[in-house]
Amino acid sequence: MSSVNQATRIDEGKLNAFVGQMLGDLGGASSVAMVRMGDALGLYKALHTNGPMTSAELASTAKVDPRYLREWLSNQASSNYLSYDAASAKFALPPEQAMVFAIPDSPVYLMGGFDLMAAMLENQPKVQAAFKSGGGVAWGDQAGCMFCAVARFFRPGYHNNIVSTWLPALGGDVMKKLEAGANVADVGCGHGWSTVLMAKAFPKSRFVGFDFHPGSIADAKAHAETHGASANTRFEVGLAKDYPGKDFDLVTCFDCLHDMGDPAGAAAHIRQSLKDDGTWMICEPIAGDRLEQNLNPVGRLYYAASTMICVPTSLSQEVGTALGAQAGEARLREVILKGGFKSVRRATETPFNMILEARP
Rank of each mutant, 00 (worst) to 15 (best):
Cys256Pro: 04
Ala264Leu: 04
Val174Arg: 04
Ser106Asn: 05
Asp39Met: 09
Ser106Ile: 04
Ala92Trp: 00
Cys148Val: 15
Tyr109Ile: 06
Val4Pro: 14
Ala86Val: 13
Asp249Ser: 01
Glu292Trp: 10
Phe114Ser: 03
Ser78Pro: 11
Phe207Trp: 13
Ser205Phe: 00
Asn294Glu: 07
Lys338Phe: 04
Ser306Lys: 02
Phe212Asn: 13
Ala92Ile: 04
Ala322Gly: 14
Gly171Ser: 13
Met1Val: 12
Gly134Arg: 07
Lys126Pro: 00
Asn80Leu: 10
Gln293Pro: 03
Gly134Asn: 05
Leu337His: 01
Val208Phe: 05
Asp219Asn: 14
Asn160Ala: 03
Phe114His: 02
Thr54Asn: 05
Pro203Glu: 11
Asp262His: 11
Leu295Thr: 14
Ser343Glu: 12
Phe254Lys: 01
Ala62Gln: 12
Ala138Phe: 00
Gly328Ala: 07
His269Lys: 05
Pro168Glu: 05
Ala264Arg: 03
Phe210Met: 13
Leu93Thr: 01
Trp72Arg: 08
Asn353Met: 05
Arg333Pro: 04
Lys90Val: 09
Glu225Phe: 10
Ala266Tyr: 00
Ala118Ile: 11
Glu71Met: 15
Gly188Lys: 04
Gly339Ile: 02
Thr279Glu: 04
Met175Ile: 14
Leu257Asp: 08
Tyr84Lys: 02
Leu58Ile: 11
Arg271Ile: 10
Ile270Asn: 07
Ile336Phe: 00
Lys176Gly: 15
Leu167Pro: 08
Val163Phe: 01
Gly27Phe: 06
Thr61Ala: 13
Val184Asn: 02
Val137Met: 06
Trp166Val: 12
Arg67His: 15
Ser133Ile: 06
Glu236Asp: 03
Val251Trp: 01
Arg359Asp: 03
Tyr68Phe: 11
Ala305Met: 15
Ala151Asp: 14
His48Lys: 06
Glu57Pro: 12
Thr195Pro: 08
Leu337Trp: 00
Pro297Ala: 07
Ala143Lys: 05
Lys221Pro: 04
Thr54Lys: 05
Gln142Pro: 10
Leu274Ser: 07
Met281Asp: 08
Asp173Thr: 13
Asp211Leu: 06
Ala266Leu: 08
Tyr302Gly: 01
Ser273Ala: 15
Thr61Val: 11
Phe153Ser: 14
Asp249Asn: 05
Gly328Ser: 10
Pro168Tyr: 01
Val319Glu: 15
Thr252Phe: 04
Ala151Val: 15
Gln326Thr: 15
Ala17Phe: 02
Asp65Met: 07
Arg9Leu: 12
Leu295Asp: 10
Gly42Cys: 10
Asp289Leu: 09
Pro95Asp: 00
